[in-house]
């Protein structure tokens, strides 16, 4: 009798602990998603203001690059959320999505200055901004249990247009980068060297472009 009571007490304690953890996780996720929605809203406003004031897209990337890099890099936390089980999505799927974005930001647009004024950069920036505002606000409202129909609708319908446009923007940007990468030999390693390995960023970029193919029909 006594032992079963004890068991009950232990179980309750465990349950309380679990509940506490869940509340903490929800609080953190709400904060995170609000912050990310705000971040991408700031980016949207900055982009619109820039275009209204200057009337051109030239210089737009440079004016928002710090904010973009900041918020896009913080998306890495989403992979962490999946890894620790705060969010029930596959770590691999989230990992691939986030890392392709991070890659695009840091290893293409940030690293290859000559392409920052291409129209295609603006193209994927606009797509990303719209996607992320809908996505993060969807998560936020969902966590708060007040999901407006419009947000839900946007989340599941915008991508039909946005996804292909985003892919085109990203592909055109990488394509535009090819000649500069080839000329500068950046991020590449030639033989002979003591590690006995070589790496050609130019060829790597071509492989990256080809790797978009399997995702083209996979629109979700």
């Amino acid at each position: 009798m006594a032992s079963s009571e004890e068991d009950g007490a232990v179980e309750e304690k465990e349950n309380n602990k679990k509940k506490g953890k869940r509340v903490l996780a929800t609080a953190w996720l709400t904060f995170y998603n609000i912050a990310m929605t705000a971040g991408w809203l700031v980016l949207a406003v900055a982009m619109i203001r820039f275009y209204i004031q200057k009337g051109t897209h030239k210089g737009l990337y440079k004016s928002i690059s710090k904010t973009l890099k900041f918020f896009q890099t913080f998306a890495l936390l989403e992979v962490f959320h999946c890894a620790v089980g705060m969010v029930r999505t596959s770590v691999i799927v989230t990992g691939v999505q986030v890392s392709s974005r991070i890659y695009m930001v840091w290893f293409i647009t940030h690293s290859i200055k000559q392409i920052q004024n291409e129209e295609s950069v603006v193209l994927f920036l606009v797509v990303w901004t719209v996607t992320e505002i809908t996505r993060y606000s969807f998560y936020t409202f969902n966590l708060l249990n007040h999901l407006p129909y419009f947000i839900k609708w946007a989340r599941y319908n915008f991508f039909i247009v946005l996804y292909p446009v985003g892919v085109v923007g990203e592909l055109m940007t990488i394509y535009a980068a090819l000649p500069y990468v080839q000329k500068s030999g950046m991020f590449s390693m030639r033989l002979p060297n003591k590690y006995n390995v070589s790496f050609d960023y130019y060829i790597f970029l071509i492989i990256v472009m080809i790797s978009y193919i399997p995702y083209i029909h996979l629109q979700r």
Binding site: L191, P192, N193, K194, N196, V197, S198
Partner: peptide
């Protein structure tokens, strides 16, 4: 490919 490459560097 790398071990038999003409530009192979032998161990340090």
């Amino acid at each position: 490919y790398y071990i038999n490459h003409p530009f192979y560097t032998p161990p340090m």
